[in-house]
């Protein structure tokens, strides 16, 4: 039995010893968390663990015991703002990588001050997207960073 605080809500749940956090979160109903690979390459499963962006596919759920987790469902205001900019550019496209990208972008905004385009690209390098070609997302992220 572990205790997870997800988006402010406390969950007590049984987990297998080899279960990873993405599977626990999806089982608890946080379906925004997506999986795109098994090799920690795609960034789709990014969530915030104690305010730090992590890949939820690469963390045993047991190690998240007692921690605070934020998923896209739990950041409504910021998601609305960033999501609005993405949508204006058409940069959300299929949307499958969007939750992970948005969580990492939110973490970046908290961490970096006035990042250059290159710094943004490097910070978000681990968030793959096949639909957009990235440039529309960069335009949206720039707008988001400016507000």
């Amino acid at each position: 039995m572990i205790t997870l605080t997800v988006n402010g809500k406390v969950h007590q749940t049984e987990v297998d010893t080899n279960e990873v956090l993405i599977d626990t979160l999806r089982r608890l109903g946080y379906k925004s968390v997506k999986r795109g690979c098994e090799t920690a390459n795609c960034g789709l499963c990014t969530v915030l663990l104690d305010d730090k962006a992590i890949l939820s596919c690469s963390l045993l759920s047991l190690r998240a015991d007692g921690k605070h987790i934020l998923t896209l469902e739990g950041v409504r205001e910021e998601a609305k703002l960033l999501g609005g900019f993405l949508a204006e550019q058409g940069g959300e496209q299929c949307g499958y990588c969007t939750p992970g990208l948005m969580m990492n972008t939110i973490a970046m905004k908290r961490e970096l001050v006035d990042p250059t385009d290159e710094e943004i690209a490097h910070y978000l390098m681990g968030n793959l997207c096949r639909c957009s070609g990235y440039v529309s997302q960069l335009r949206a992220i720039r707008q988001y960073l400016e507000v």
């Binding site: 925004s32 609305k80 949508a87 959300e92």
Partner: peptide, 12 residues
């Protein structure tokens, strides 16, 4: 905007 954009960007 895409008609599904708010569902997509809120993780529905």
């Amino acid at each position: 905007k895409k008609i599904d954009s708010s569902a997509i960007t809120s993780g529905k």
